[in-house]
Design a protein around this nucleic acid. Structure first.
Lengths: 234, 234
DNA sequence: TGTGCGATTTGCGCTGGCGCAAATTGGTCG
DNA sequence: CGACCAATTTGCGCCAGCGCAAATCGCACA
């Protein structure tokens, strides 16, 4: 197992306010791992043996319903914690986490979480803050699902992806990992057909540019108008 | 201001594992207050000066969208904390909290939150666990909104209310506070018309019994079948 | 007991979005 | 370079659920 370069991670929000020595002690107890594209990082109902810090790549968090439908809860970007079931008082993971691309992550035994949180208060505080903002996100999702039309929800989802994982290209802003219409549908509670139709329509208006397993947002501002329900119908 | 009887609250989950003395110290710093029906406990965007423990009554937590629609996030029952924005790293309340009936609550200045959590670890732990379970709830809501039909969502909402605030009567289980069709609609992301139609239909089947600002569930098990999508269409 | 208002019900028409199927496209791998 | 397969597009039909309006009901208060 190779040595980790602390400079890679010293700037992360999770470790904000930690002394270099403490940081090293924490990181020193981690094991690093690679997850190949489409492989699970952890699985729903599985015992939550570890929690993770994503260093590189993108991970899709999906919940499966008893009858086989899937709902994408969120995408994890580098620098974010995942699998912190333990911090929420859970013994098992609440969802499946699947690598959207080849990923690199650090993993700690769940057991260490409590120790870290009490030994390094700023670590505990920042993770709880993270949990708080996830609760916010979840509530926002609920509001959106309850009050917005599919078109607005898909627009919001795209904008969220752009903000979180947008990479500037000469055509616009590209979502930096493979994403299918089906994936977008699972984020917004609709069907891949409807997403496809919407993207086609937007492509006609030069708001986005589609592609196989990819989406490029050309006119984020226009998209925002749609997301807010302020777009004029043609 | 009257003295509080510690025995009223010593059994609450929030204070689980606290020594009697610590409990008294915490409660001693609270101010108790009454909130009249339909009055706000706190309001969205307002600075989060206090956090609360509901002792008696029921509080509806509602988020308003910019365009005036409202979504009910949850109902608070006696024994639950509310307004813990501070614990989530927020400076303002994320929603409106309105007394569904006359209520009694304890209030502490938000500033004390951090002190309590570090001085009494079990207080911190149990509240974080509460936050965790709210995150769970929120995710469940998202899943429901994304995958279920309106009929199932309304059934789920009713069952949740029954579990949380059901009172047994000779006709069935009554939701123990005034609740309108509009309220149920705001919980499930639909319209009061649709809720009314569903309740009427269920009343014809003797699954529930309606009334002005009230609902009595007669056949919870049948309702569960509907909620799970396992009910046979007539 | 009467009055007034908010809550509820119900009819009617409409449409956003789903479901299915078939065609097409684009990438990958031998 | 060609075959194969997954992803995507698109046409078509349908219906769950919304929006509105009108009627009714039930409670609270004078």
């Amino acid at each position: 197992m190779g040595r980790l370069d602390p400079s890679l991670i010293s700037g992360l929000a999770v470790f904000e306010g930690l002394a270099a020595m403490d940081l090293e002690r924490i990181v020193g107890q981690a094991r690093s791992l690679r997850i190949a594209k489409d492989q699970p990082v952890f699985e729903q109902e599985q015992e939550a043996h570890s929690f993770f810090l994503l260093l590189d790549g993108h991970v899709r968090v999906v919940k499966s319903t008893p009858d086989g439908q899937e709902v994408t809860v969120r995408y994890i970007s580098p620098g974010e914690l995942m699998g912190i079931a333990h911090a929420l008082g859970r013994a098992t993971y609440p969802a499946n986490a699947i690598a959207a691309v080849d990923c690199v992550a650090l993993a700690w035994p769940s057991r260490l979480w409590t120790a870290f949180a009490s030994d390094y208060p700023s670590f505990g505080a920042s993770t709880y803050k993270a949990v708080g903002s996830r609760l916010q996100d979840a509530h926002t999702r609920v509001i959106e699902m309850a009050t917005e039309q599919v078109e607005q929800r898909v627009a919001h989802a795209l904008l969220k992806l752009v903000k979180q994982a947008g990479r500037k290209t000469d055509e616009g802003i590209l979502i930096d990992f493979p994403i299918t219409r089906q994936n977008i549908a699972e984020m917004t509670g609709t069907t891949l057909f409807t997403v496809s139709r919407l993207l086609s329509a937007w492509e006609d208006l030069d708001l986005v540019k589609g592609g196989r397993q990819k989406v490029t947002v050309v006119a984020p501002h226009q998209l925002l108008l749609i997301a807010e329900g302020r777009a004029q119908k043609s």
